[in-house]
Design a protein around this nucleic acid. Structure first.
Lengths: 345, 345
DNA sequence: TTGAAAGCGTTACCAA
DNA sequence: TTGGTAACGCTTTCAA
């Protein structure tokens, strides 16, 4: 369109025969400005396709209206970026941030520079930081929190670590999942996940608690510690069956992706789900109900979580007190844990 | 840590007993600066945890080192943000952009303001724009391209639309997929997708071409036009079988997610895959091989694509000529199209 | 090899 | 209700 040099606010002021101060106020909907003037200037701005220079505005106001979102995962080994659950969280965060007038600057721990607070906050690239996932080691998160920058972490709220955490009640989720399996007739429930990983360790705690409350003996060979990926799950279940046989009749997988890997291993051996082995996951990703049999799971409400995360971040930006939030989880029973009719039992 | 006011470059200059110009040059690795001075200043900067104010820097240089990535999908109805393929693309773009020294500002078409060029480029929020997906209607993309801003689109390179496109050879992909089904013994191949959608329409073209080349008659009742989601696929296949019966023995699904929806519909009816109906998808998402049976598909190399996209964007930023790039696709045969042993045929 | 100083385009204070 | 003007913190030209 217009190849001529980019219009500045000063140019617009000249065109409108007012001061730059007036134009600035009009464009920012400052109530001081007379209604008529505001409309005139806005019309002119639209006509000339004018838009404020964000860099200048940010320099002047010391505010960026940007939030850095860091996917805190270690490529390859850990829960990888291919996990649809993470995308769901990012998508919901994007929506919540936009509604609050912020933009989303995306990073992940493999890329973000060593010092998040320094790079994003001191460097005036963002006003606040959201970290998705506590990973196995939250050293970087702690380091960031120590700088007292606006920060909210999606993780496990049980771990009171000196920073604000929003997350599901993982322990209850683990308990509910395991309890559901036991209720469906399982006697030997296997845990498939990473008991060292912040959120997963809480799910594991819930698992142990459900076993204990059912007065069942805990069998440590039924705790399979793996990376949180489908592939690792597939391999672990396959290896277990090969070396020890089918020593379990239920699986609590610490995420839906992990559950899918396990299901593949079972199906390959023509082990019937749920009759021989029932299985339940965690997250309720879109794929869960597309599986055959449809995968039972513990649903995390990511949309609501995203709103809480943004709300807690805004509180910090306004200098108010922020607090961790524990989200409820919900059992979604599907075919993969369906109790068989009595005559077959 | 340091609660005192944020250090500026000027403060650092004072501490080092040099001018601001020298500090600026030192921090930006300007070769004019004496080695020794540079080291001294860098050490001081590190010691004081100094970091440049990006806003000021951007204002001065008129460069942001940010690229806006817009997920061009319409929520709910179209290929939704829950498609893991999109996350893969975003992840790979993030990596490629970081390597080139850029950050990724994430948006989606539902959120990005009406005029992308104005908002991101004129507003100095980003130096360039990457649009992921041409969607059904590329009006917004054309409008952006008309502004002659640095822009690269992930889409179908066949559609020469006045902007630079990087994407797979979708037509060949569609042909290869359909040809593979026919080769595996299918006679009546159903197309499941959206022939109106830019990339999908090319896959559809390939499908038609393969049918024609095999001298088979085209049956229009075997073209199922649906939104590009698993749910729509599940419903369409279910409805088709109910109303017309099993009139097909192969399905070319325009994406893996669509294929998964179709598989669910088949399995629910105990229709054997691949013996009664073979099925192939497109994308090769991580889940494809986790399905049971594992899903045959056409693999798109997203990592390589991301690098091409960034390279073409960089070319435009440097004022060089940029061109569309067509990526090769690859057939990944798995169990969902496995030819049964001869004695069963 | 370094320094002085002019701006980049806004916003917000103080006056009018 | 509006205007004049001094910053915001950096980079870069020109001079030394």
């Amino acid at each position: 369109m217009n190849i001529s040099k980019k219009l500045t606010l000063a140019d617009l002021a000249k065109l409108a025969n007012v001061s730059t101060a007036t134009v600035s106020r009009a464009l920012n909907n400052n109530p001081l400005i007379k209604q008529q003037t505001r409309e005139r200037i806005n019309a002119l701005a639209k006509e000339h396709n004018f838009s404020l220079n964000a860099a200048a505005s940010r320099l002047r106001t010391q505010k960026t209206n940007v939030v850095a979102v860091i996917l805190n995962i270690i490529d390859e080994t850990e829960q990888s970026i291919t996990d649809p659950f993470l995308l769901k969280v990012v998508g919901d965060l994007n929506k919540a941030l936009n509604q609050a007038g912020f933009e989303l600057l995306l990073s992940n721990s493999a890329m973000a520079r060593d010092d998040w607070a320094r790079y994003f906050i001191d460097g005036r690239r963002a006003d606040g930081i959201i970290v998705v996932g506590q990973a196995k080691n939250d050293a970087k998160v702690r380091q960031t929190a120590a700088r007292h920058v606006p920060l909210v972490v999606w993780g496990d709220p049980h771990s009171s670590a000196g920073y604000v955490i929003v997350g599901s009640n993982n322990q209850l989720g683990g308990f509910t999942a395991t309890h559901h399996l036991l209720n469906s007739g399982c006697q030997k429930v296997l845990f498939l996940g990473d008991p060292e990983h912040a959120e997963m360790s809480e799910r594991y705690r819930g698992y142990r608690q459900a076993i204990a409350e059912a007065k069942l003996e805990y069998d440590e060979t039924l705790t399979l510690s793996i990376d949180i990926t489908s592939t690792a799950a597939y391999e672990a279940i396959s290896a277990h069956i090969i070396s020890r046989g089918l020593t379990f009749d239920g699986i609590f997988a610490c995420s839906d992706m992990v559950a899918l890997g396990a299901m593949k291993a079972l199906k390959e051996r023509y082990i019937n789900i749920p009759n021989e082995v029932a299985i339940i996951g965690f997250d309720d990703i879109a794929l869960a109900e597309l599986m055959h049999p449809a995968l039972s799971t513990i649903k995390q409400d990511t949309a609501a979580a995203a709103e809480h995360i943004v709300a807690q971040l805004l509180a910090q930006l306004n200098g108010d007190a922020a607090e961790s939030v524990m989200m409820d989880v919900k059992l979604i029973p599907r075919m993969s844990t369906r109790q068989p009719p009595t005559e077959y039992r």
